[in-house]
Computed example of a mutant assay.
Amino acid sequence: MSVIYVLLAISLVVALLFFIAFVLSVRNGQYDDAYTPSIRMLFEDDLVKEMPEDTDLNEKKSN
């Protein structure tokens, strides 16, 4: 039973170390993306809304 307490303590220490490392890397800008915003305008938008079809325009096109 005492092994469970030791393993639980070790796992909490390791988890805390990983959390501290993550917070430090975020604060230092490790995950900042400086490249994508500059080329974002080159990508097509996936959410293009189609204009509703007007019956008057369709009739003029077919004539």
Score class of each variant (00 low, 15 high):
Phe43Met: 06
Val3Phe: 15
Ser2Lys: 13
Asp32Gly: 07
Lys60Ile: 14
Val14Ala: 12
Leu57His: 09
Val23Cys: 07
Phe22Trp: 07
Ile39Lys: 02
Phe22Ala: 00
Val14Met: 07
Ser62Ile: 11
Ala21Pro: 05
Val48Phe: 04
Val13Leu: 06
Glu44Ser: 10
Asp33Ile: 06
Ile10Thr: 12
Asp56Ile: 07
Ala15Ser: 08
Phe18Cys: 10
Val26Thr: 10
Asp56Pro: 02
Ile39Trp: 00
Ser62Glu: 13
Ile10Trp: 12
Ile39Ala: 07
Ser62Met: 09
Ile39Tyr: 02
Ser62Gln: 13
Thr36Arg: 12
Val48Leu: 00
Ser62Pro: 05
Leu24Phe: 11
Phe22Gly: 03
Gly29Trp: 01
Val14Pro: 05
Thr36Cys: 06
Glu44Met: 05
Ser25Thr: 05
Asn58Thr: 14
Leu8Trp: 12
Ile10Leu: 13
Leu8Pro: 06
Met41Pro: 00
Glu59Asn: 09
Arg27Leu: 04
Lys49Ser: 01
Ile4Trp: 05
Asp54Lys: 03
Gln30Lys: 13
Ile39His: 00
Val6Gln: 11
Arg40Ala: 09
Pro52Arg: 00
Val14Thr: 10
Val13His: 01
Thr55Gln: 14
Phe19Lys: 03
Val48Ile: 01
Ile20Leu: 10
Ala9Val: 07
Tyr5Pro: 09
Tyr35His: 13
Asn63Met: 15
Tyr31Ile: 08
Pro52His: 03
Asn28Glu: 15
